[in-house]
Design a protein around this nucleic acid. Structure first.
Lengths: 109, 109
DNA sequence: ATTATTAATCGTAATATTGCAATATACAAA
DNA sequence: TTTGTATATTGCAATATTACGATTAATAAT
């Protein structure tokens, strides 16, 4: 059905999955890495940097924005994007809790 | 097209996206949390624990296994799954590098 | 041998995602 | 005001994902 049964999972599980999902495409990973590298902001040179069409990049940016991980400031005709530091930290806490649970060194069964 | 243009991204970017993608469904998050909690192994009580049909759980387990994050041991008629500790650590390193890059506190533009 | 139990696989329906061309919008410059 | 530039939105085609019923495979128990 292509549709996840979110209602049977906890809020936390859905939150983790939602964050992970947005990182689940290399274009969005690349966008975030580029925003990292330039520290401050960028605009549509993401289209040049990454080899995808402008509408495609715009769509990926929208998904990142919807989750609050980036924000965009209009600057004349262009839009300047950067990572939303506060929300990034919140995301990092959620994901770290999930990834860093203690594992017993026991082998399987 | 439903198909990511992986060839235009770096191996690392694709690797990050691939790991993230598998965490991008709450059922797989729930499976991993359950395997965490029980430390050692579990079998098809995942079907009872999570409210999805057996073929659906089996499919999610397969995806986790394909990435090497879990392994399964046949035990009679049932199969016992657990987290693959070594591969989990490798994954954690890759994801941590991505999530923990230094952020400048600068506001956008 | 037959039967039960458990898990994997197959097939399929419903929905989501990815990517882009075409178009719209919004502002700047002339 | 018209023209150019940058980004967003719309619409659509191709493919992927999710979920499950039906079936198969593999072992256990009788």
């Amino acid at each position: 059905m292509g549709l996840a049964k979110t209602e049977i999972f906890t809020d936390k599980q859905n939150e983790i999955a939602q964050y992970a999902k947005v990182f689940g495409h290399p274009a969005r990973v690349a966008i975030l890495q580029y925003l990292y590298k330039l520290n401050a902001c960028v605009c549509g040179d993401l289209v040049d940097e990454i080899g995808l069409a402008q509408p495609t990049i715009s769509q990926h940016l929208k998904e990142l924005k919807n989750l609050g991980l980036i924000k965009g400031n209009v600057e004349g005709t262009s839009v300047c994007y950067c990572i939303d530091v506060d929300n990034w930290k919140k995301m990092k806490n959620v994901m770290s809790d999930f990834l860093n649970q203690d594992l017993n060194q026991k082998d399987c069964c």
